[in-house]
């Protein structure tokens, strides 16, 4: 499933989409950045409520396929700009992390 497919299927809002054709292989959910950094693998979707600019650095350095911000987390323009600069796909949903992960699990294991 590509990031673009995920946007359609999970009804996500694309805040930054530099690489919509990127393939999602699994996912990781967490809000503690240092923890996430060592567990989030390349090409995974990262589901989080964290909305600060350091999220973009972590996603980029961990080489995540995309970040999915849940619970309609508010995002400052600077964060979106940084995501575009770093080539990070940044998406948003009004659903909870649990709900997104449950659907993502079904879609990526299908």
């Amino acid at each position: 499933m590509t990031v673009r497919d995920a946007i359609t299927r999970l009804d996500l809002e694309a805040l930054s989409l530099p690489d919509g054709d990127r393939e999602i292989r699994g996912g990781y959910c967490g809000d503690l950045l240092s923890w996430v950094m060592t567990r989030l693998q390349s090409d995974e979707a990262w589901v989080t409520i964290m909305n600060n600019v350091n999220v973009i650095a972590v996603a980029s350095l961990s080489d995540a396929a995309c970040v999915i911000l849940t619970e309609n987390a508010e995002v400052e323009e600077a964060v979106i700009d940084r995501a575009r600069e770093r080539g990070v796909n940044l998406l948003r949903s009004d659903q909870s992390s649990f709900e997104i992960c449950a659907q993502l699990g079904e879609l990526t294991h299908a």
């Binding site: 809000d31 503690l32 950045l33 240092s34 923890w35 996430v36 950094m37 060592t38 964290m50 600060n52 350091n54 999220v55």
Partner: peptide, 16 residues
């Protein structure tokens, strides 16, 4: 509050 300061920094550096 930013998601850091969990005491993981140095252990992560060693691990990697």
């Amino acid at each position: 509050n930013l998601g850091f300061g969990a005491g993981m920094g140095l252990p992560n550096m060693k691990r990697y």
